[in-house]
Design a protein around this nucleic acid. Sequence first.
DNA 1: AGGTACTTTCAGAACATAATGAACATTTGG
DNA 2: CCAAATGTTCATTATGTTCTGAAAGTACCT
Lengths: 185, 185
Amino acid sequence: MELTDKMQAFVMHCGEMGSRWGFNRTIGQMYALLLISEEPLSANELSQTLHISRGNVSMGIKELNSWQLIATRHKPGDRKEYYQPAGSIWQMANRVFEQRRKREIDPTLSLLRDNLLDEPRDQQERYAQQRLLEIHDLLEMITEWASELQRLSPEKLSTLMKLGAGVSKILDFRDKLSPKDRTES
Amino acid sequence: MELTDKMQAFVMHCGEMGSRWGFNRTIGQMYALLLISEEPLSANELSQTLHISRGNVSMGIKELNSWQLIATRHKPGDRKEYYQPAGSIWQMANRVFEQRRKREIDPTLSLLRDNLLDEPRDQQERYAQQRLLEIHDLLEMITEWASELQRLSPEKLSTLMKLGAGVSKILDFRDKLSPKDRTES
DNA sequence: AGGTACTTTCAGAACATAATGAACATTTGG
DNA sequence: CCAAATGTTCATTATGTTCTGAAAGTACCT
């Protein structure tokens, strides 16, 4: 498969950013390429277009699958597998957030929980636990909030985001109108 | 400096998570240690407690400074520098988000912008640009939304987050009450 | 000036991660 | 059943990242 310069540039950029986004260079390139190509691509096409080994592609596919970022397609009379991005850009972003939360936050949260179960033995530990508690509460709030957002429909999310700073006004508004109605949950 | 087992465990955990959070093992450990110790620590104390070289500590300090995560303190009659976490946990989380946004999103956003300035030359490019546009809009919305949130006071943010799913209700509420008032910005 | 207490830098070693490609496994059509 | 086409695995190689420690730098004393 032939790429125009601009497409090349995008694919290579995604490769460079790959590791920052939680996967590696080739996986970034592979996903970028699948995203911008109208037709699903086979493993061989990926390998040839990106100049990476067939084995590497296979491992990359496996990883992208585990992130639920691609779907497999078949063409009639062809036993090759063809790959294409799974779902909309929104869904993709959701998946990436979720996966990263699992890797970057959940383990820490569970360590903190365990730690906070024990009584502190001295002043030093008392101080430390206080700090851990703050982090714990923050992380917990972030994960809960994130999963609430994920549960919202894309339209509502979009409304909420476009609202931007307006959110602040709405909060004031609500407090003035119905102070009893404050959330307790 | 002596650490209890639990404090050890936390520090080591942060080391392991370090690279997932955007810095490296020793930097994660250093920051964790500073967070849970009541007194500011000197570079030597960090080096000895964590069993890492003095040079490594120096580089770590530099990096933590660039993330604006630590503050330098001095004790009277002592020329050593002592380090402690800068600001509250909230501020720390803010800083980390911001830094990561700069590294993980901004470069892509600017590549996409450049790319979208050019006219597509053929069908293949037309399709690709369509996809890039979607990503661009998504990323832009995320960064704008994120900076709005950062601008909110911690109290309001907290209210908003505790609200959780309630956000959805408020959106409905607003739409019913004052449909003309929809945000245009 | 010279000495001491501290910090920073950076080349190279140690370690960690990713990529290759040949061997192995699987599926399908004949 | 065999052979061809495709997919997967994994030991080895290649690349990238982090850490060390010795040397150089800085600031402050007397």
